[in-house]
Design a protein around this nucleic acid. Sequence first.
DNA 1: AAAGTGTACTATGTATCGTAGTACACCATA
DNA 2: TATGGTGTACTACGATACATAGTACACTTT
Lengths: 135, 135
Amino acid sequence: MPRTQVLAIQVATGDSRPLSKQIVDAVRMKIATGELESGGKLPSVRGLAQQLGINPNTVAKAYAELGSEGWVESRQGLGLFVAPPRQRLSDDERERRLDDAIRHFVHEVVALDYPPQQALQRLDEALRVLIRKTA
Amino acid sequence: MPRTQVLAIQVATGDSRPLSKQIVDAVRMKIATGELESGGKLPSVRGLAQQLGINPNTVAKAYAELGSEGWVESRQGLGLFVAPPRQRLSDDERERRLDDAIRHFVHEVVALDYPPQQALQRLDEALRVLIRKTA
DNA sequence: AAAGTGTACTATGTATCGTAGTACACCATA
DNA sequence: TATGGTGTACTACGATACATAGTACACTTT
């Protein structure tokens, strides 16, 4: 039986993102970087809720989204486990959502009047964390 | 007296962004790229609302935000005009908001399992529109 | 005087988010 | 068998954001 991983996660109500999205982002990142290995067990809904000091329903909502996106799988009565890697979205959907993300970032750069080249460099550094795993 | 510019803008309820933000983004972009020159006059609140088929209050909200950010200025009874370029945000605020934007983009790349190098290249192309004006 | 300008209100309806409580089927173990 | 832990599915409430609707006011130009 896989051992439950600790999941060093922290959430903040002051964050611009909803609590459930903060959890989804954090778990997805840990899976993508390999910190959470395929087949590993996630903390229980009630356990993580108590650890974070938030409502169990909020954790359940985050877990439901991770499940619908194919990142985790649930075994009845046992818990949630990291799913094996697979294609999770259609190519069209991927392109559409990346376009949205690019548009969002460009508009923010414009709003801040931030030097584009410098912004690009900052983003390049932030993306390096992923290159090892995705390459 | 400056002539009212036409402002080729279109909004869509299907867009993920609120209507008011769509307007703010579009106007900011046109100012940043030089399509709207400093001192140019913007369409009236009621005029743009009719053109876009939305409520005047929504346009007023967008204009209010553009005003508070320093992109436009209002002259009593005359209308809204593009303000001269200036420093609009503190360096700390700029860095904080860019960090947010970077985090958002990275998380989206992870969620899509999109090749980071490819995403960076796509963003580089999207940012080229700004380089001419900002450089 | 009339029309057009930005701005400031109140009000209504819709949607999202987080919290709270309850309930159910499933599994492992004492 | 009984108990406790698992994910999941509901309902309900309050807070917030968003768009719409309507009204009103001070200002400027014609």
